[in-house]
Design a protein around this nucleic acid. Sequence first.
DNA 1: TGTCAGCCATAGAAGAATTCTATCAGAATC
DNA 2: GATTCTGATAGAATTCTTCTATGGCTGACA
Lengths: 299, 299
Amino acid sequence: MADIKLRDLRYLVAVADAGHFGRAAAACHVSQPTLSAQLKKLEAYLGVQLVERGTRHASLTTAGQRIVARARAMLEASDDIAQIARACSDPLAGRLRLALLPTIGPYLLPRVTPRLHKALPRLELMLYEYQTAPMLERLRAGDIDAGVLALPVDLDGLEALRLYDEPFVLAVPAEHRLGKGGTVRTADLAGETVLLLEDGHCLRDQALDVCSRVGMHEKQDFRATSLETLRQMVASGVGVTLLPELATRGVYGAARGVVVRPFAKPAPTRGVGLVWRRTSARREAIEAIAKIIAAHAMG
Amino acid sequence: MADIKLRDLRYLVAVADAGHFGRAAAACHVSQPTLSAQLKKLEAYLGVQLVERGTRHASLTTAGQRIVARARAMLEASDDIAQIARACSDPLAGRLRLALLPTIGPYLLPRVTPRLHKALPRLELMLYEYQTAPMLERLRAGDIDAGVLALPVDLDGLEALRLYDEPFVLAVPAEHRLGKGGTVRTADLAGETVLLLEDGHCLRDQALDVCSRVGMHEKQDFRATSLETLRQMVASGVGVTLLPELATRGVYGAARGVVVRPFAKPAPTRGVGLVWRRTSARREAIEAIAKIIAAHAMG
DNA sequence: TGTCAGCCATAGAAGAATTCTATCAGAATC
DNA sequence: GATTCTGATAGAATTCTTCTATGGCTGACA
C-alpha cells in the first residue's frame, strides 16, 4: 500500500468517536467486518496499534489519539476541497456584489430583480448604490464585483458591456407651456430654466451637456439630491428638468403636477453599462446578469 | 466514489509542479494514461476542471490552484501520520503511566528507576501513587497503563504478573523488650500493641491478618496516614508495627529510635505484582518493566 | 506542405483491493 | 450454564486501478 486512505482514517475517527466498532461501522455505512479489517490493515501499514479493543469498549492508544487528530484535519481539508469545488463548479452560484447608480437602481431594479432571481436562483445578489467615482473606486478595490453605471467611463483594468440606451424625457409642471402634446423637440427648450442634481451625479453632467446645446440655463442656487426631489420641485412649478426614461415608468409615471414628454428623434440618451474587473473570477455570473438586464431594462 | 483519494491529490500536485502529464506521471511512478484517467475522474467527481491542458504545457485552473493548496496540506498531514506512527511503533518508547501503592512507591522506585532508565531509555514513565481500589479503577478506566500493588486482587479484565515477595519486618521502639537480637518469631509478639495504617491501605489489612493470628491487638484511636508517620510513632514508643522490608532498606534503615527485626522463617510476606488491562497495547513495555523490577526489587 | 515529434486521451485486459454475508471465538451477564 | 455482546475470520462478488497499445491533435521543421 502506497498511501494512507482517507476512508481508513474515517473509520478510525469513527471508532474514536463511537468507542465501538459496530456503531462506528454503522456511522460509516459499512459492515463491521469491513471496518475491522480496514483498521487492522491500517495498523499493519503504520506498524502501530491504534485501537485498544476492550471487551465492552474500544479506546484509542496514545498513537491512535495523536493520529486521529491529524486525521480529523485531513478530513476537514478534504471537505474544504469538496466545498471549493462546489463553489467553483457552479459559476452562477454564490455571493455577487452589484452596485448601481442612484439614478438607475431604484428604477431599474424593480424591472429586473424578479427575473434575475428566477434565472439565477443560486446567485446571492448584494446590492449597493454609489455614484460613478466611488463605484469605480470600490470596484477596483475589490469591494464590489460589478457596477451598473452610465458609459463611457475610464476603463483601466476593467471590462464593460453596454446594457441599454436610455432616452431622456422632459419633465415640466402641469401648467407649463410645454405641458401638452406628444414628442417635444430639443429646440423648443431654449430659454427654459432647468433644475439639476447636485454635483457627483453623472446624470447632472449629462443633462448639463444637453442643456448647453439647446440654450437652457440651470436654475441657480438649487441642486437636488435625488430624482424624487427634482420631480417634486418640477411639480411645484420651479422649472423643468430632464429625467431618465425609466424614472418615469410604472409607479413613477403618475406623479401629480408633472407632465412628461418624450423627445422627438434623435432623442438625447445615455448609455448604461455593466463594468467589472477584467481579472474577476465572476465573469460568467456577471455576463449572465448583463444579459438579463439588457433584455428587460427598457423592454 | 465516496472519498477523494490521496493518490489522486498526489497526481494533481505532481501536475501542478511538473506542468506536464508525462513528467508528473513519471514522478508518481505510474504510467501517463493512469495519471490522466485518474485526474479526469477527480475532475468529474469534483465537477470542476482542475487542469488546463495546453498543447505544450499543462497549467492549473483557478479551482485547481485553490484545491492544490489544500491537497498539499493534506499530503503533509499524511506524512505527519506516518511520522507519528514511526515514532510510536517502538513498543519500548513513548509515555507509560505507572501507578504504585503508597507503601511501595517511595521504597521501590529508588531501587529500580535508574535501571529502568538505562534499560528502557525511550520510555517516558509517568508515575502515580494510588491505593489499591482507586488504582484498579483508574486502570480499568484507561487513566493509567499499569499498577504495582499487593496481590492478590480481583483481576477482571486485568492481567497480573508477580514481581516479588516482600517479607514484613517488625519495627519496635529502641528500648522495647523485643528491641534486641536477630530474627524474631511471630509467636513472641503476642500481647503487643500494634500501630497500623488508616483504612484503604492494603498493608493495613495484611498486617491485621498477621496480628490476628499471633494475638496482637491494634492500638485504638490511631491510624497512620503513611509508613513514615507510623515509623515516627514507633520511635516515640507508642507501640510496635509491621513494615514491608523495602521500607527499612537504604536511607530508611537508619531511623532513630526504631529497631527493625526480621522474622524467623516462615516470615510473613506480601506478594507484590504488576497489573494491567488484558487488552492493553503496552503489554510489551509493561512486561519489560516487570522483568526489571522483579530482578532488582529485593536483590 | 507534408512529415515528424510531443502530448494527452481512449480502449480493453489483467490484477489488486474492498466489500459483503455468514460464521466463529472470547468475555460478560443473567 | 445459556445468552448476549463484541470483534475477528473466511470466501465470494464486485469495484477500482493499473498496465500496454494505440489514436488524435497540435506545433515544429525540412
